[in-house]
Structure formats: structure tokens, C-alpha cells
């Protein structure tokens, strides 16, 4: 089955992709903290940084409308803050506006960071920052097996469609699909464990 990978642009080869991941990550963290510490900045700062984001997306060949589309995820929160401020006594919309600008700036940079760095490079940076081993194991598990589980869901949906084309999918079948997904994952975990043992995985060494 076909999937679109969630970091599909990270395997391109451009000058931005070639920068060391540590440098990109530290730059991202410093910039994000800066944006959050100084909440209301001059509008020239926003113009400059959005132009910068646009330039980076141009050089790294990550399409700009791909970034714009991802803004949808923060919109509900912006509306929440705007509406709540509107109905209070102060009636001040500027907080919501500044929050939206800050937030979208950070979202743009985060997407650029993830889409220009391969996932195993990000994990290796985390390893250098002394993030505990078990967290890294879990993160790499998610990255590898997410597509397997999506495949399982698709197969289940296909078979439900084949057997009962009319009442598909209702609330109860959704709970059943998710429950069966857990059971299948549970059974898969045993097989993965034996495969890992065969390939020389030892939990004691990996952990400490």
C-alpha cells in the first residue's frame, strides 16, 4: 500500500540539508526561546523573519504552501484565545494577533527543521544531549512501525467494507477496529522481541 511519509522532504540534498543537525536544532531552540520571551515585538522583526523563512524554504526546496497548510493545526487555539479575549472586559484582540504571529513563526521553523533533517540524525543529536536510551528506543519504534499499523487499519477497513458495505463505519465498529489494532500490535510485539534477540539486542547494555 502507498503512504506519504511525514518527512518526505528530508531526503533531498540541498545546502540546508547539509548543515549539521546539532547546529540547526540549537538555532531552533534559541530562536524559539527568543520569540517566547519577548512576546510583543516590532513588526519589522516579523517581516524579516517571515522573509527569512521564505528564503530557507526556497533554498531547501520545501514548498512554501506546504508550510502554510500546516498552520491549520494552530488555528483553533488562536480562535479560542481571540474569542475569550473578545468576550472579556478588555476586548483586546492584539494578544491573539501577536500570539498567532509568534506561533506560526515557530511552526514554520519547526517544519523546516524536521523536513530538512533525517529522523535518525535528530535521534543522534538527542543521544548526544544525553536523552535516556529508552525514550530514543520508543521514538525510533514509532517512526518504524507507524506505517505497519496504518497498513493494518487499512486492511481492516477493506475487509469491513467487503463484508458490510452499508453500515460502515459506525461508532461501535470504530472501537472494534482500535481494539483489534491493539491486539494485533500485542501479538506483533512478541515476534519483534524474538527478532530483536536474534539480531543481538541486549536490553541491559542498551539501557544504562
Amino acid at each position: 500500500m502507498k503512504h506519504s511519509f511525514f518527512d518526505k522532504y528530508s531526503y533531498l540534498d540541498t545546502p540546508i540539508h547539509r548543515i549539521r543537525p546539532e547546529i540547526k536544532m540549537i538555532f531552533f531552540l534559541i530562536f524559539t526561546s527568543f520569540v517566547i520571551i519577548f512576546e510583543k515585538k516590532h513588526f519589522i522583526f516579523y517581516i524579516l523573519s517571515f522573509v527569512g523563512v521564505f528564503l530557507i524554504s526556497l533554498i531547501s526546496k520545501v514548498p512554501f504552501n506546504f508550510l502554510i497548510k500546516k498552520i491549520i493545526t494552530i488555528l483553533p487555539f488562536v480562535f479560542l484565545v481571540a474569542i475569550c479575549n473578545f468576550f472579556s472586559k478588555s476586548k483586546n484582540i492584539s494578544t491573539a494577533l501577536y500570539t498567532f504571529l509568534n506561533s506560526s513563526l515557530v511552526v514554520f521553523l519547526l517544519i523546516l527543521l524536521v523536513e530538512t533533517t533525517k529522523f535518525y540524525e535528530l535521534l543522534s543529536v538527542l543521544k548526544k544531549f544525553r536523552v535516556p536510551k529508552i525514550l530514543i528506543i520508543l521514538l525510533s519504534f514509532i517512526y518504524r512501525y507507524f506505517f505497519v499499523l496504518i497498513d493494518e487499519i487499512e486492511k481492516t477497513l477493506y475487509s469491513i467494507k467487503l463484508r458490510s458495505p452499508k453500515k460502515y463505519p459506525n461508532k461501535k465498529s470504530l472501537a472494534n477496529i482500535v481494539g483489534m489494532l491493539f491486539i494485533k500490535s500485542f501479538e506483533r510485539a512478541e515476534r519483534i522481541y524474538y527478532a530483536m534477540i536474534i539480531r543481538g539486542f541486549s536490553a541491559r547494555d542498551e539501557h544504562n
Binding site: 514509532i142 500490535s185 512478541e190 542498551e206
Partner: peptide, 25 residues
């Protein structure tokens, strides 16, 4: 992490990993 490392059962690691994927999905 301290708690899990002290009563560590290696068979649990793939189970945790795949459950994490399950929650993610």
C-alpha cells in the same frame, strides 16, 4: 525511567514501543 530500569523485563521494550506506535496512531 528509574522505575522501569529497576524492574526491567526486556520483553517489555518491544511491547512498549509498539504500544507507543498504537497511541500515536
Amino acid at each position: 525511567i528509574k522505575k522501569i530500569n529497576t524492574n526491567l523485563n526486556p520483553q517489555r521494550i518491544p511491547l512498549m514501543g509498539i504500544s507507543s506506535t498504537f497511541v500515536f496512531t
